[in-house]
Computed example of a mutant assay.
Amino acid sequence: MKAIVYDRPRHFELAELPVPEPGQGEVLVKVLVAGVCGTDAHLHEGEFGPTYPLTPGHEVSGVIAAVGAGVSTPAVGDRVVFDNTASCGRCPECRRGRPAFCHHILAQGVNAPGGFAEYVLTDADRCFVVSDLDPEVAVFAEPVACVVHGLDVLAMQPGDRVLLFGAGPTGLVLAQLLRASGAGDVTVAAPTQAKLDLAAARGADHVVLIERSDPWSSGDRLRAVAGDGFDVVIDATGSVGVLDQTISLLRVGGTMLVYGMAAENARWSIPPYEVFRRELVIKGSFAQQFAFDRSLAALRGGRVDTSGMITHRFDLEHYADALAAVADSSCIKAVIVPTSATAATGTTEERGDS
């Protein structure tokens, strides 16, 4: 089978590997669609704890090609998504109900083989059958699960006024679930008008175009929306330039949620006196925990509408182009379609019929 394989940061090849055979309790998944996200860009740079050799890809929608001993469900032919993480269940963090921080975590696409390949092995008990969902909808299960966990961490109050920086795939999912979770008012700020238009169509109450090179220039327009400040400010960009203005936009007692992934060596200047004087709260959201079932419920029930969000499709041979697309403002969501007969090498408009 073909697979993307890294042997060190920034160095990968399209390798030919044996198709793995499922063992006890395992299933072999033929990858139909695999999402490319900002985490993959960080992994490309050697951040986020990669283990080599590495096949990345943690957002996977596929079909069961074979099952190992002891597996009764899912069955061959079922379309599935799977939780890419497996925790030990015994370490201190697992015993406190925080499996994403397991001391021995296995994370497919990070320290174990992931989905930028034609086939991937995973545990049967981490699979969710999604034969009722289009594979290009099901591939959003993992990122939506991460958003669900982020909202768990946020613990937003009904009626809160929310400012969200970022209108990429995560921002668009956040905007929809914030509204569905009881936000009184949602403002989305981003530097790309087409993405803001999509956010507005998905239910954002206000959209504000900001300058990518100078986020501070939008401060007055954002304050005009909120008056005395926002109850919640969420950064889904990972940009320090954006983070630097978030504290000033919070109202007394407000909450800042750091959702976007910044570079590991990035530093954010937080005014401690403001946190103290105005009793501000700063939270972080790392990765999904106990959220796949709710993610799929949101996708099935239409609370999250992914139509129009996949803008770029690539085959494995064009993986480098897929990485580049993630940083392109014209791209909302890029995916890998490993089977060359159904894959495209560019935007939605360039995609061939499958």
Rank of each mutant, 00 (worst) to 15 (best):
H11L: 08
H11S: 09
F12W: 07
E13M: 12
V19H: 05
E26K: 04
V29R: 00
G38H: 14
G46R: 07
E47M: 14
T51S: 13
P53V: 09
P53A: 09
T55M: 00
R79V: 02
A86P: 15
G89L: 01
R90K: 09
C102K: 07
Q108L: 01
N111L: 06
A112E: 02
L121Y: 05
D125V: 13
R126W: 13
D134E: 15
F140H: 01
R161D: 12
R161N: 13
L164D: 01
L164H: 03
F165P: 11
G166M: 04
P169R: 10
L174H: 04
L177Q: 01
G184M: 03
L196P: 03
L198V: 07
A200L: 12
L209S: 07
L209H: 08
L209G: 07
I210T: 02
E211P: 15
D214C: 04
W216Q: 15
R223P: 07
A226H: 01
G241W: 04
V242P: 01
D244A: 06
T246A: 12
I247N: 09
G253H: 10
Y259D: 09
M261G: 15
S269F: 12
R278D: 09
E279R: 09
I282L: 07
Q288N: 12
F290Q: 15
F292T: 09
D293K: 12
R303A: 08
V304Q: 00
E317A: 11
D328Q: 06
I332W: 03
I336P: 03
V337Q: 10
A344G: 11
T345D: 14
